[in-house]
């Protein structure tokens, strides 16, 4: 099975996401699914704002969309985002730890469907969402990258993840992009 990158971000996440997306290679060969906490009535403006900085095409997920390599997928406001082996599933189940979309929900479903092929990335945030999800990914043999807490707008979320599980890498945003390129670029395979 191919790789899947899942990214969770909360407070301060947009700037960090921009930096990471900007640093991705055009040959990036894995799909990327992102949960960025946001207000539930926020519109699709985020897709546009991020697209300006991303060499890869960005889509807000619609239910049962296929998961295609080289695309960046955003969880829509007010829906949980889950993955199955070749497509996304959305749900309006109750918020998990006050969050919908929830990072844990995305990460746990990725751990199940993609197991050791999953790369989970935890970025800045002022809550603990994603810590359990990250440890679920580790338990399945996947890879975890956590943003270096001192570089985060809010260190709470990266710190919670580091307390919950052992990260494979703890890096500032620009180096997260480089690491992802190394793990998932077509050129790295040749």
């Amino acid at each position: 099975m191919q790789r899947l990158v899942v990214i969770g971000a909360s407070l301060g996440g947009l700037t960090t996401l921009r930096t990471i997306l900007q640093g991705l290679a055009t040959t990036f060969s894995a799909p990327i699914a992102i949960v960025q906490h946001r207000h539930k009535e926020s519109k699709t403006g985020m897709t546009k704002a991020l697209q300006l900085h991303s060499p890869l095409p960005i889509r807000e997920v619609e239910d049962k969309d296929a998961i295609l390599p080289g695309y960046v997928y955003l969880a829509p406001a007010d829906y949980h985002l889950l993955v199955e082996p070749d497509h996304f599933v959305l749900s309006v189940d109750e918020p998990v730890s006050y969050a919908r979309p929830s990072i844990d929900v995305l990460f746990e479903s990725a751990a199940e469907s993609y197991a050791e092929q999953t790369i989970g990335v935890i970025l800045t945030g002022a809550n603990q969402d994603g810590a359990l999800g990250a440890s679920a990914i580790k338990a399945q043999g996947g890879t975890i990258i956590v943003q270096e807490p001192t570089t985060a707008t809010s260190a709470v979320m990266p710190t919670a993840a580091l307390n919950q599980t052992t990260a494979d890498w703890v890096l500032p945003p620009t180096q997260i992009a480089r690491r992802l390129n190394a793990l998932c670029s077509v050129s790295s395979l040749t």
Binding site: K64, H80, L82, V89, S91, D93, E108, S109, E112, S113
Partner: peptide, 9 residues
């Protein structure tokens, strides 16, 4: 039913 969300419930 969609398996991933059903399983969570």
């Amino acid at each position: 039913y969609a398996m991933s969300s059903l399983k969570r419930r």
